[in-house]
């Protein structure tokens, strides 16, 4: 019973954080609400007794990805976008109505389904007896999914190389073919950036 009440509280805060993320004008506020959502999802992972994943969720999402986003947002000057229109003029209401309809479909379909547990045997008691959540998790990871785990490291390497190449300053030969220089701003914009 306590778990159900806690789940409802965390679920409401998760959805509220998500709705706040997509409605904020200020990108930093949206990002902080996104991290709030991530932390609530981590709390739900704790309630589900997925302890390792909950800690990884906090470390990776609320830690690493947050720092990455904050760094880039501070690096770019985004303050000027707050006065502009935030949503697509032609499709915002259509998109909203269609999304609510799809959500209603999800709920109707889910209300008519009864799930039957496959009883795989990894109950919390069995996991505790086998040496704890992290040990059982890593046993399954390195026995059943070792090859995908190695491929994941290659994906991370490719992402790192791609990110470095994308943000690298272009060489002088490429810059000459551009129509205009990014540094050659109008004086008004330059003065605005210094403020």
């Amino acid at each position: 019973m306590v778990e159900k009440i806690l789940f409802i509280i965390f679920a409401v805060m998760t959805v509220a954080g998500g709705v706040g993320t997509i409605t904020r004008r200020n990108v930093i506020h949206a990002l902080l609400l996104l991290v709030f959502t991530f932390l609530n999802v981590a709390a739900i992972f704790f309630l589900t007794q997925a302890y390792f994943l909950a800690v990884i969720q906090i470390l990776v999402y609320a830690g690493a990805i947050l720092v990455l986003f904050v760094f880039v947002i501070m690096f770019l000057n985004l303050r000027t976008f707050q006065e502009q229109e935030q949503t697509h003029r032609g499709q915002r209401w259509v998109a909203l109505v269609l999304s609510v309809l799809v959500l209603a479909e999800f709920i109707i379909v889910l209300a008519g389904i009864t799930f039957v547990s496959a009883k795989g045997g990894f109950t919390p008691e069995a996991i505790t007896a086998a040496g704890g959540s992290t040990r059982v998790f890593s046993n399954a990871l390195f026995n059943q999914t070792l090859l995908p785990f190695e491929v994941a490291s290659v994906i991370l390497l490719v992402a790192m190389v791609g990110a470095i190449i994308l943000v690298k300053k272009e060489k002088a030969a490429n810059v000459a073919t551009r129509e205009w220089e990014p540094d050659a701003e109008s004086p008004a914009e330059a003065a605005e950036e210094e403020v």
Partner: peptide
């Protein structure tokens, strides 16, 4: 949560 994300992708600029 998923449909919240879909609304964000479809409407925000």
């Amino acid at each position: 949560l998923f449909m919240t994300g879909v609304v964000g992708v479809l409407t925000r600029r």
